[in-house]
Simulated scan of single mutants.
Amino acid sequence: MFWKSRTISKIGLTPPAPFETRAPLAICLIVKDEETHIGEWAKFHIRAGVDHIFVYDNGSSDKTVPIIRDALGDKVTILPWDQKLCDGRSKAEIHNQVLAYAHCLRNFGAGYRWMAFIDVDEFLVPTAEASIPDALAPLADKAQISLPWHMFGRCGHEKPPAGGILANYTQRMKDPLSSEHALNWKCIVDPCKVTGVRVHGFDIENAPITVNDVGLLAQLDDRKNKAFYSNAAIQLNHYYTRSNAELQAKVNRGSNKTVDSQKHLKRVMRIVDAIEKDTVTDTSVADFLARRSAS
């Protein structure tokens, strides 16, 4: 009997052969209707040393696409990605984000030593160096880096504040590992060694192995171990809620998968409660920008 699943969330692939010369770093991003924050996100990552951003547009009806194109010029490639696909036999939905990641790896990965897979509410923040490539330099012999979410809540903002995300959201969940509801990872990989693709972890040469940002090796399933936690080189800031108004819009928009709306609401609010239960002031972005200006 053909195995059935409601969602196909892992895709295997044959990785591309690397070009003789590869640029240091690209980001793969899937978006929909993010005109409010996409410009800030894009400019920050280019300033942090990203060479190119591949944007998979999942049917935006606002100004997301022209804003990021205007912000990045020839440093962005935009691909239409508005679709819901399923397996023709089991009717299992193919996770559209995983599909975008696999497409990006196979079609563009050959030209980059590193490729990061994050969302528009996530920022890669170097915590000691003046750029992301500098922070990655000690990991030149590695193929996958797993970065835990550092989750930021509403920070008292009912509506989107003037001045953007980075300057206004400085309170985050104190312990990133303290709640399974608000814990996950995003990854930076060598595209030419990836053989399996999921949103939160990749197979490297057919093995589910990774390192943290200082090179400690682990299996993907063992990343929850406190000994694996690190933000010594790069911190992944996840601005999960932004303002309360934006949180409500997030809930109303629904999941990027086909799921019951009430289940989605309960899941989101469990995460919000975990984020805002115990917080600490986080100046990682301000500290990085100061180092960047001084370099």
Rank of each mutant, 00 (worst) to 15 (best):
N184M: 02
I67E: 14
Y112L: 06
K263D: 15
G88P: 00
V120E: 04
A245P: 06
D141F: 03
K10R: 07
I94R: 03
P15T: 04
D213C: 09
R198D: 06
I11C: 07
S146C: 14
W149A: 01
D70S: 08
G153L: 06
A116R: 05
W149M: 03
E40G: 13
I275Y: 15
S293G: 15
V199T: 04
D203L: 13
T127L: 14
S255V: 12
C86R: 07
G164E: 00
L25P: 02
A227Y: 08
S131Y: 07
G109F: 10
Q97C: 05
L217K: 13
I204Y: 08
R6V: 12
K266H: 15
N237C: 12
A290V: 14
A92W: 06
I8A: 04
I8M: 02
R253G: 10
D175K: 06
V211T: 14
P126W: 15
A116F: 11
T64P: 02
K159R: 06
M115T: 02
T195I: 13
L166V: 11
D62F: 05
V251S: 08
S9N: 05
A116L: 10
G111I: 03
A167W: 11
D33G: 02
P133W: 03
A71K: 11
N212A: 01
S60D: 06
L105E: 03
S60E: 09
K10I: 09
I132W: 13
G111A: 08
A92K: 00
I94E: 07
A162Q: 06
N96W: 12
R69P: 04
K63N: 14
T210V: 14
S9I: 01
F54Y: 14
